Amino acid sequence: MMETTFVNDARVMAKGQVTIPKNVRAALGIETGDRVTFIVDGSNVRVVNSAVYALMRFQEHMKGEAEKAGFLNEDDVADWITASRREDNTQ
């Protein structure tokens, strides 16, 4: 996602709905049907693409697990995938 700084505002409607401005949707990579996550920190609110946020949370949760499993670099992962495919083909 590109790093962009700008300010935009939107009106809150009677039912609490807000239209996310087009340039904000573009900056967040949000398209029709996508979900957004609201992160409230005191009096500040961040709106993030839910898919991106979920991936970031997953990466935080899994941090260090690859090393524990013996994957120290991309070659280790590629070797494991190759070995797994060979095992699958022999079964």
Rank of each mutant, 00 (worst) to 15 (best):
F71Q: 01
K63M: 11
N44C: 11
N73C: 14
Q59K: 13
R57L: 13
V36W: 01
A66G: 12
N44E: 04
R85F: 12
R35G: 02
V45P: 03
F71S: 00
I81V: 15
G64C: 06
F71W: 10
E87M: 05
V48H: 09
R86F: 09
V36P: 07
N49S: 11
S43L: 11
M56Q: 08
E87F: 02
N44T: 14
N73A: 07
V48C: 09
W80I: 00
D75P: 00
R46M: 02
W80C: 12
Y53E: 15
E74A: 12
K63Y: 04
D34T: 08
D34C: 08
N44H: 15
F58D: 07
R35E: 13
R57W: 00
A51D: 11
A83L: 11
E87S: 02
V48S: 02
S43K: 12
E65S: 10
N49P: 14
I39D: 01
F38M: 06
A83M: 13
R57A: 14
H61G: 00
F38L: 15
V77L: 15
E87P: 00
F71D: 01
G70N: 04
A69Q: 06
Y53Q: 15
H61F: 11
A54F: 07
D41G: 04
D76T: 07
T37L: 12
N49M: 07
K68G: 02
V52R: 11
A69I: 06
E60S: 13
